[in-house]
Structure formats: C-alpha cells, structure tokens
Design a protein around this nucleic acid. Sequence first.
RNA 1: GGAGAUGUGGCAGAGUGGUCGAAUGCACUUGUCUUGAAAACAAGCGUGCUGCGAGGUACCGGGGGUUCGAAUCCCUCCAUCUCCGCCA
Length: 422
Amino acid sequence: MIEINRIRENSNEIIERLSIKNFDSKEIITEILELDQQKREIQVKSDALLNQRNSISKEIGNLFKSGQAELANKKKEETVSLNTDIQDLKEKFNAIDSKLTDLLYQLPNTPHSDVPKGKTPEDNITIFEKGEIKKLHDKAKPHWELASEFDLIDFDLGVKITGAGFPVYKGKGAKLQRALINFFLDEAENSGYKEVIPPLLVNEASGYGTGQLPDKEGQMYHATEDNFYLIPTAEVPVTNIFRDVIIKKEDFPQKLTAYTPCFRREAGSYGKDVRGLNRLHQFDKVEIVQVQHPDSSYEALEGMIEHVKSLLEKLELPYRILKLCGGDLGFTAAITYDFEVYSIAQERWLEVSSVSNFETYQANRLKLRFKNEDGKTQLAHTLNGSALALPRIVAALLENNQTENGIKIPKALVPYTRFETI
RNA sequence: GGAGAUGUGGCAGAGUGGUCGAAUGCACUUGUCUUGAAAACAAGCGUGCUGCGAGGUACCGGGGGUUCGAAUCCCUCCAUCUCCGCCA
C-alpha cells in the first residue's frame, strides 16, 4: 500500500497519479488524512495518560514496599477514571486504525510517470515487436485440435477428474511441459536467479503481503478449513519470503526464480478466450522475482525485460511487448510490460508474460526494508515477471510450428525434450 | 491425531507481579592502546508510533483477560521439541 507519509506530504500528486489508473481517490484520501490526524491526536493523548498511570503505579509499588498500604490503596483510586479514559481512547484508536488500514488497502499503487493514459487494453502501447509471422499450410489447425490429434493434452479427461480448465498432459505433451519448465529454470539461473521451490498454499498474511488480499480474493481457491489459499502465481510465496525482513544493503539485489503450478478461479470468460489452453484454472509457470534498492529497480526491470525477450527469441516465437496503459495496469503495479506471442492459427496475440515494478507498494505491506546510508530503515522495491507461463507458449509452439509432417520443436528446446518433432 | 515440554533482543541465555526494554556472554560498530593486526580496555549496539528537541509510548510467539501495575498469573491460537500413533 501507499505509505501514509507520502499521502500526508503529496496527497494532490497521488490523486493525480491515481487518475491515470482511472481511480478517483479524492474522497478516500480526504478521509484517510482525517483519520490519520485523529489517530495521531488520540495516540498523543493516550500516551500521556499511560505515562500518568505508569508513574502512579510506580508510586503504589514504592508505597507498598515501604509499608504504607493505606496510602497506596488511596492512590489506586486515582487510576480508576484514568483507566476508563485509557480504555476509551484505546477503543477509539482501534476503530480508527482499522478503518484507516481498510482505506489504505483500497488505494492502488500510483503508476509510474511513463505509464500512458488509457482505459482499455486497446490503449496499451506496443513498444517492441520481433519475429516472423509465417504463413501456414492449408490444413493448419488451432492448438486444441493438434493437442487431441497428437494425443498431447486431454481436456475432457481433466473435466472428468476435476472440471473445465484442468487439462491432462500426456506423452510428448507432458514431456514438452517438463522440457519448458527446465529450459526456463536453466535460463533464469544463467541470468543470476536463485531457484526456490515454495509452498503452493499460503496463509492469509502472505495474501495481504503481495496484494492479492483483500483486493482479489475471488481469484484464489480458498481452503477454508485451514484458511489457506492456493497460489495464483509463485509471486505470492516467493515475494513473501521477504515479509518482515530487514535486508542488508550488501545483500541487494535478491533475485529468485521458481517453478510452480498456478491456480486461478477466474470469472466471467467465455468462447474463444477460454478455448484450449488460452485460459486455465491450473497452469504451470516459471516466475522471476527481484528485491532491489530503490535506486536500481528500474535498471533491474530492464534486465527482466531483456531476459524474457531472450526466452522468446530462443523459442523462435513472434512476439511483441506492450506498455500497459493506466486503465489496464494491475492494482499493485507501478508499471507493467506485457509480452504477447502470436498464435497463427487463432490469428491473435496471447499474453505470456507480465513484468512489473511494484516499487514500495508491496514492500510497505510486507515490511520489507533495508538500512540506508543514514542508518534509517527504508522500504525496498519489489519486481516480478513471468519467465514464462507455459500454456500459451505451448499453444503458440504447436500452432506456429505445425507442418504437414508434424510439429517442429525449436532448436533450443530439443536438448530438453530429446525429440525434434511431434 | 494423542500425551508432555518450550517459545525473551542477530545468536546463546537470566529474569520472586512493581526501579525490566529487559542481566550476562558471544557477534557487531566506534574509540583508546599498537608500525599494523590480535589481545585488553571503554562506549555504543532491536523495531514502530509520536515530538523541533529533551523526551513520551508500545512491543519478551499472536490475540484476549485478571490487576493500580504483566516478560512474569489465566484463557485461546500458532510454532518448535520429545514420546506414541498414522503415513509418501
């Protein structure tokens, strides 16, 4: 969430920035400032009363020690009204504080000054495009037909076992998944990311830490008996490694990568959007996460973009990079670049990666800090990106590489699949 | 899942309900000494809120309670350890 100090000092700037996200924050911020003011006043009062009580209590202790029980008991009476006042202030304080926290949770991150205005995905700006969009042969098919023709993915079987959006990968289809995961992990390691295998279920605190809660509660599967959530992305468990951590300056940057399945409930899609691998409830993804010093987080973001670019180029897929406009930007991100690959048989672009800088927004929730030159604790920056999400990569690979003699595996992947064609 | 024990500062480890934000040791930082280092000695050494500042206040696993006053007593949750059961 946005730091309260920033809101105190730059409320107008924040309101203006949030308007780029098409978020009208004027009322909330006014209320936040009021509550913040009240909260501090109450705290000062309460501190003063506690101070009084503490000194009276000390006196009572001393009186008892020196055998003046009568005087001590008389002193006790003084604390009666004091205690009701303290209790009163405590209740008020808690009420205001939880209201304030609630409102702060409702404020999205402020977009970076580079973020273009806009409301819908059409307003995103294509900043880079590369790769040849080939012509396919006459009998070219969409990936869901290829998947069933070559017996790679069984969607109906998944429906039987679980439900729609939980495919079963078979034979070379399963091996292709494994190959991609290993390829992505190796590439990440070569770029300096340390591999971790995190839990796939997280507690509530972790959900709040990265911002899935309370904003996107409905997106996550919820194991209510234990109050755990199935992770929608490795971002959640991996970034929460750093919750409540004060890292040493020399330990910057932290670069982690993780492969995990991801679980998303997703609501309200239909037709071609959800056909085949386009949108699933369970899918595999390799994520890269960085914790950075604020001065170098944008440089790190560039590095992450370069990393994802190199993956797509090694896979020989035509892709483009979009800079998301304010309206399409996620709740917690300051800036996001989406990577899309072209799916030839479907004749559409498919999002395969999202690379974002969250600046201090997540760090503030996580209490992820470092000691700066002045010896003060300061919030770090967090970043993450998909590198990459598998299903749509598979869709594009199958569709784009189909020939009349089968599907060709890109060269870079062959050492991992150990077969050249499907 | 059952029984028992434990949870204190970066680590180890004290702490009869009152002068405990917390002894002591180690680690760390700075200074003295030294050509330099080590050793020794001295000082410092957690996090938040609040205040221009001195300071005030809160935090001894989390939450709640008893009390004039809680690290210390009670309840509850969580975690760890030991034993038993179950199990990939």
